[in-house]
């Protein structure tokens, strides 16, 4: 049996909240098989607990994504090249 079919077997009849939760990452990534995705979405649009949880999950990912930019120190590349010139020959 195709191992993917085994993994997504709960989706044959209709997924539970727990099934949906287990694959939130794949759902957001867009890597769920098409039929599974359709059943997943049908559950998500009709289950208030899953809707609330998914909203919080998405908000978490968005807030993580808006982390402050890291500033690059002046002359970082130049110092790195100088370090390499000095150390490559030594090694």
């Amino acid at each position: 049996m195709n191992p993917l079919k085994l993994v997504f077997r709960p989706f044959m009849r209709g997924p539970s909240c727990e099934d949906v939760n287990r694959f939130l990452c794949e759902y957001m990534e867009g890597t769920l098989p098409e039929k599974t995705r359709a059943k997943f979405q049908a559950h998500l649009s009709n289950c208030s607990a899953c809707i609330s949880y998914f909203e919080q999950y998405k908000a978490t990912v968005e807030m993580v994504n808006e982390q402050k930019a890291i500033s690059i120190p002046d002359q970082l590349v130049e110092r790195t090249l100088d370090f390499l010139k000095a150390n490559i020959h030594r090694n």
């Binding site: 909240c17 727990e18 939760n21 607990a49 949880y53």
Partner: peptide
């Protein structure tokens, strides 16, 4: 991690306001 009972969420989630 969230917990489940018979496949359903065993807790409720209040709305967030970031």
């Amino acid at each position: 991690q969230p917990t489940f009972s018979r496949g359903m969420f065993s807790q409720t989630f209040e709305q967030w306001n970031p």
